[in-house]
């Protein structure tokens, strides 16, 4: 019944504005569109087990093997200055890593790049990895994380999770991935998450970029306009640490230099899955801040 109505209204639409339409048989096309809509497959990831995973080639998390560094130039290797060595130990800062893969090429016995995304964390320190420690955190499929997020949000916020996104000087790579969360494949709205136009409506501030000096004031004001409880999620290597842009005259070297950051999502850029994982942690934080008053 509803479908019929839609088709009828489309027909009306098409016939009423015939002169502005190039094709003559628009009626036919309109009905065809409707039948196409009804026949289209569901593109959204739905299978929690066999759902979309990153391709094997994807450069994601790095595992650090315990090996005595044989090259002095190891710390000069990294463009984002994520690797530090003191002669014996290697210290890898995943908050700075831009996933270029050069370290694996230069020292394959120390660095191993996997295809799963780097796990977002609540404390900046957790992104720093020392040699010897292997990454053992398991990751859940996208769909499962989304469902958990929905349950938590409805329990804690009794409504949906509202996000305000601010670009504080990113290269727009992170924006591409955040926008992807809204497409029909990831469709984050089905988990009760939506992006709002005003900070006044937001629970979460999603920030990208190294906090450029020219954006500093606007970023602060956006944060101040948000009601409590408010959570800041730093998305991408630049937001976590300044990334490849570092700490210079024009940047402040990470969002936590400007605002209190609750969640760090590493990656250059982080995949939509990683950002969703970050939001999952963000809701935990809201719960904690509510309990603490």
């Amino acid at each position: 019944m509803i479908c019929e109505e839609i088709i009828m209204s489309h027909k009306k639409d098409a016939s009423g504005l015939r002169n502005s339409v190039d094709s003559g048989d628009s009626k036919h096309v309109q009905t065809k569109i409707m039948s196409d809509i009804m026949r289209d497959d569901v593109e959204t990831i739905k299978d929690p087990v066999n759902g979309y995973t990153n391709s094997q080639e994807f450069r994601g998390s790095i595992t650090l093997f315990d090996a005595i560094p044989h090259q002095d130039s190891l710390d000069k290797l990294c463009a984002a200055k994520a690797i530090e060595t003191d002669g014996r130990n290697v210290r890898l800062d995943l908050g700075k890593c831009i996933m270029c893969g050069r370290c694996q090429q230069a020292a394959p016995d120390i660095f191993l790049i996997g295809s799963i995304f780097e796990t977002p964390v609540k404390v900046r320190q957790d992104l720093i990895r020392l040699s010897g420690k292997l990454d053992s955190q398991g990751q859940k499929p996208y769909e499962q994380m989304g469902k958990e997020l929905k349950e938590k949000t409805s329990k804690i916020l009794r409504r949906s999770l509202a996000i305000r996104e601010v670009d504080a000087g990113s290269c727009n790579g992170c924006e591409v991935e955040i926008t992807a969360l809204n497409n029909a494949i990831y469709d984050i709205e089905r988990f009760g998450v939506h992006f709002v136009a005003s900070p006044r409506h937001a629970d979460v501030l999603l920030v990208t970029g190294p906090a450029s000096r020219n954006m500093e004031i606007a970023l602060r004001r956006t944060f101040e306009a948000m009601p409590d409880p408010r959570i800041v999620v730093a998305v991408g290597a630049c937001a976590c640490s300044g990334g490849i842009f570092g700490d210079t005259y024009a940047t402040t070297g990470g969002i936590d230099k400007v605002l209190p950051v609750d969640i760090y999502v590493p990656g250059c850029p982080p995949t939509p899955q990683a950002i969703l994982y970050g939001l999952l942690l963000a809701v935990d934080r809201i719960e904690a801040s509510k309990i603490n008053g």
Binding site: G209, P210, S212, N214, G246, T248, A250
Partner: peptide, 11 residues
Amino acid sequence: LFYTHKGVEKL
């Protein structure tokens, strides 16, 4: 514009 100026050329 230039809100995202991050000193690329200098860097």
